[in-house]
Amino acid sequence: MRADRLVATLLVLQARGRVSAAELAKELETSVSTARRDLEALSTAGIPVYPQPGRGGGWQLLGGARTDLSGLTSDEARALFLLVGPAAALDPGAKSALRKLVRALPETFRADAEAAAEAIMVDLAGWGAAPRDRPQYVNQLESAVVSRRRVCLTYTGWDKDPVDRLVDPWGLVRKGEVWYLLGATDGAERTYRVERITDLEITDQPAQRPPRGGLEAAWARVLDDVRGLRARASATVTVDAEVLPWLRSTFGPESIQQDTVIEGRARVVITAPTAEIIARGLVGWAERIDVHGPASVRAEIARLGSMAVDRNTPGGPAEG
């Protein structure tokens, strides 16, 4: 796991003062190119790690060999934990390394470092949507979470007018390619999709933070709510097995269950917020599916099919 390597790289630099990429690769049992990328990542993140040119050069942690992290500034410590924290959340070994790293920090830096390490969660399973660019306000929100400052943001829901909100930012979650801000507004837990934030300002007001582990618990509640919304309607369908990947892409992998294949066909349960959404996702495969129920989905598919025939037969409205 990259987070574990980055922490190990920093500790090697502290112990030796200066190493070459080849020496680091041998020490950590990685390739030279991987070692070089890790050193560059630390440097890019703002950690005082610099290449030394010339014969006998290599990479050096500014200030020489150290046995602790007391040489890091507060900003440098936060940069390190923002860099390795999200990946460490996925690896128990990296989590352990981060805990040791926190204990090596001066007392005055520990709170910021811990907040930075917990500022972002990574949930690798996407909703099934297309890749998106990193939203523009992620870096500012990271800073607000770490510095524990409230943010004033303008938010536009998918079916609502823009509204202004004063938010206690608890942390960020990346779900696949989508970023979410978890926090509290007027004391109530709220979730904001970062790409829908159209303006943001970090205030001087101190923000209330959840207890330790509160971000993970809040995200678990969000997932439960979303699953409930996405599963309000369901349909039982038998479909040709080769169509299953397309259905997973259309509805999301979590919305396709019980896909046991027998003689080239699979009987599955599809869930979605409404029967109409299920019908619209299935109607294009009409000749390769059998919808066993409920009647509402079957009726909606029949309605959509009838409309398609009426509008697209020769001489119909589409030719007008």
Rank of each mutant, 00 (worst) to 15 (best):
R2K: 11
V7Y: 05
A8L: 11
L10M: 08
L11F: 11
L11N: 09
L13Q: 06
A22M: 07
A22F: 02
L24C: 08
L24E: 06
L24R: 06
A25F: 02
K26W: 02
S31F: 06
S31M: 07
R36E: 13
R36D: 12
R37N: 08
T44H: 14
I47K: 07
Q52F: 03
G54F: 12
R55F: 14
R55D: 13
W59T: 00
G63V: 13
R66H: 14
R66L: 07
L69M: 12
L69F: 13
S70F: 01
R78V: 15
A79E: 05
P86E: 06
A89T: 07
L90T: 10
G93V: 14
S96G: 11
L98T: 02
R99C: 01
V102G: 04
V102Y: 03
R103H: 11
P106L: 08
R110S: 00
D112S: 10
E114P: 01
A115N: 02
A119Q: 03
A119E: 02
M121E: 14
A130Q: 07
R132Q: 07
V138T: 08
C152N: 11
D159H: 13
D168F: 07
D168I: 09
V173S: 00
K175F: 04
G176R: 01
V178E: 10
W179D: 01
W179V: 00
Y180F: 14
L181G: 01
L182H: 11
D186N: 13
A188D: 15
E189G: 05
T191W: 11
D199W: 11
E201I: 10
I202M: 14
Q205H: 11
P206H: 06
P210H: 12
A217T: 10
A218P: 03
W219R: 04
R221P: 03
V222L: 13
D224S: 09
D225L: 14
V226D: 15
R227D: 13
R230N: 13
A231D: 07
A233V: 08
V237I: 14
T238A: 06
D240C: 09
A241Y: 02
V243E: 04
R248C: 04
S249W: 10
S255V: 00
I256E: 01
Q258T: 12
I262Y: 05
R265P: 04
A266S: 15
T274K: 04
I278Q: 04
A279Y: 03
G281T: 06
L282R: 03
E287S: 15
I289D: 03
H292A: 08
G293K: 02
P294K: 08
S296Y: 06
S306V: 09
M307P: 00
A308W: 04
P314Y: 12
